[in-house]
Amino acid sequence: MRSPWLYAVVALTILAAAWVVAPLRAEPSPRFVRPWAEQPASAPTVRQLTGPVPVPIRYAYVPSCQDNTGACRHWILVSARGERWWLPGAADSDSLTLSADGLRVAYSSDAARGFVIRDLKTGTTRPLPVKREASIGEFFGVRPPLLSPDGRYLLVQHDHLDKNEEVVSERPLIVDTDRGTVTRLPGGETVIGWTAAGLALVRERSTNSLPGHVSTASFVIRSPGGKVVRRTVVPGNRSRSWFSPSGHTLASLAREATPDDLVTTGVVLVGTSKGHPTRTVTPRQPVGRRIAEILRWEDENTLVVRTAEAGNDSAYHLLDLQDGTTRPIEISIPDSADLWETAPVLGSVR
């Protein structure tokens, strides 16, 4: 039997070592702000879409499940009543867009080797005269296809990599889904979005004549036929502006660089006739939640925005520009850690 002193020495050594390293163990363990979004108690039922849908589609998303069932490998449409359908032909790796009224959906289809449009009211699908081309993806800033609010026109912009492996956007295409015609717009302009008068685009230019600024943003609205309907020039920090449906107002985020990040201080409204700011709307949001992105105008007084907290806890809201109030848009995506990463496509959000 060993000496009891040996045991005492071993015990003391362990005690001393534990005491020495105690501060390391006392460091606060990392906190996960929100491991995953709130989920319904049971996974919603997803059926295959075979015919017309009874109500407008509110949003669509790519499922994050891993099996090879149809509901796992295709885009899922969610109605205003919460019903879910997976869309045959719209593979989860393809692009998809919904009209703002939630009644039309356009997507690139492997089977059709190009874009198709589906009238959700009737359940009919028609191919469009635009070929499906390989894209390096929206992750690198490639413009996804975009249906006009009434669903008649589809914007498609292809892309490729140049010799320096930089992404180059090709000239935008506007497809008249009723007539089946395609209009190619001039290059060099960045697509902003649809207005009632046509497609809004912007071109940034360097300037030396505007004190305190280094660039200007030239906005243009082009009719579906490609003609210029309206032009407006504003300082470069308003290049990410959205035209209102009437085309009379531009909305952009008022942002300010801080040592840590660019922070949003409100939404600036600019009259397109003179290019001067008319007012700044301060959204009424809980402390810490800010507008991260303007998605579109819903009507002349309402914006659809994505909001986020410090931990990128994204949500979608309708912002009333009259009084700054916000109303959440109910979006529920199973197994989604953050809506921003899932990037649902919005349809009718009323």
């Binding site: 004190p211 305190g212 600024h213 280094v214 300082p235 470069g236 920090n237 942002r255 300010e256 660089a257 660019l262």
Partner: peptide, 8 residues
């Protein structure tokens, strides 16, 4: 003077 606050 006026200044673009988003400039780095």
């Amino acid at each position: 003077v006026p200044f673009d606050p988003t400039l780095r």
